[in-house]
Write a protein that binds this DNA or RNA. Structure first.
Lengths: 146, 146
DNA sequence: CATTCCAATGTATAAATATACATAGCCATT
DNA sequence: AATGGCTATGTATATTTATACATTGGAATG
């Protein structure tokens, strides 16, 4: 349940500005997630969200840490969603983060990944075949929850 | 006074993380700015600061959502041709237009589009499957005539 | 099964932030 | 000087967010 709710939160924030947690709560209610403000406070913490002049938003990709981060930490911080088409995965990231996320992924040298191409907020991952793409997608989706 | 204080706040934030307004207040006190929390709340608003997992931070320069051109107008202005490969479309655009065209396309949030990656004069569009790619190609081709 | 963990969440409240209202200082105009 | 308008700020409080503690349900283990 929590995982789905986190996804719903991400989706809502991509679509519409949200200025406080009660607003978010009512938005989630329309999608049949009924939780209290306390839970959302925790969710927001777990999703590393920021609150600014336009409400809650995703991390801005500005470097905060010094060393080369792992794919896991990169994606759990800057990844927004994963989608699959046949043997390809399309990662959406916060704007400006696609390159560093792809670099972190490349560093892993996963055998199932033939290569990656990154734009500004999108990474394309080419996998060997559909099956391996599915496996990687699953792993990445888990990272979104972490 | 306010201007100087704002500068001091910026300096402090660049140097050290600040997690709440009272912490900021004490920091300012050391630099001989003695104001109340209320004033800092207003300052933070005026400086467009964000609050996130690492305390207050600067805006990321991401443009606020103003009115941006539609995919249709963008592509009919700058699109040159569409080609398809299985579930992928490759758009050729006038040079330098690929990024804005891709951005306009992203803004549409078409469900059949998993994501786009743009270079200088080429946009790669990843669709869910071949069928949807064909549909989108048709629509884009029509825009080329318009 | 019963038992023990543990994650997820709610409840109640503390902590942090925003704001309505009041006041003081500063120019400019009369 | 008196008046009015404007900005910055404090005070008191409302609003928003975080958290300590309790509860529940499900998975793992004996």
């Amino acid at each position: 349940m929590k995982a789905e709710r986190h996804n719903a939160i991400r989706t809502i924030l991509m679509e519409t500005p949200v200025f406080n947690q009660d607003e978010l709560r009512r938005n989630l209610l329309r999608r049949s997630f009924d939780v209290t403000q306390a839970t959302l406070s925790r969710d927001i913490h777990e999703l590393h969200l920021y609150k600014g002049p336009n409400g809650y938003s995703f991390p801005n990709g500005a470097a905060e840490d010094t060393e080369l981060p792992s794919m896991d930490s990169m994606f759990s911080s800057f990844g927004l969603e994963v989608r699959q088409a046949i043997n390809q995965l399309v990662l959406r990231t916060t704007t400006g983060s696609a390159q560093p996320v792809a670099a972190a992924l490349d560093r892993e040298r996963l055998p199932e990944v033939l290569g990656t191409i990154a734009g500004d907020d999108t990474v394309l991952i080419i996998c060997q075949d559909q099956k391996r793409a599915s496996q990687l997608r699953q792993r990445l989706e888990e990272l979104l929850e972490a």
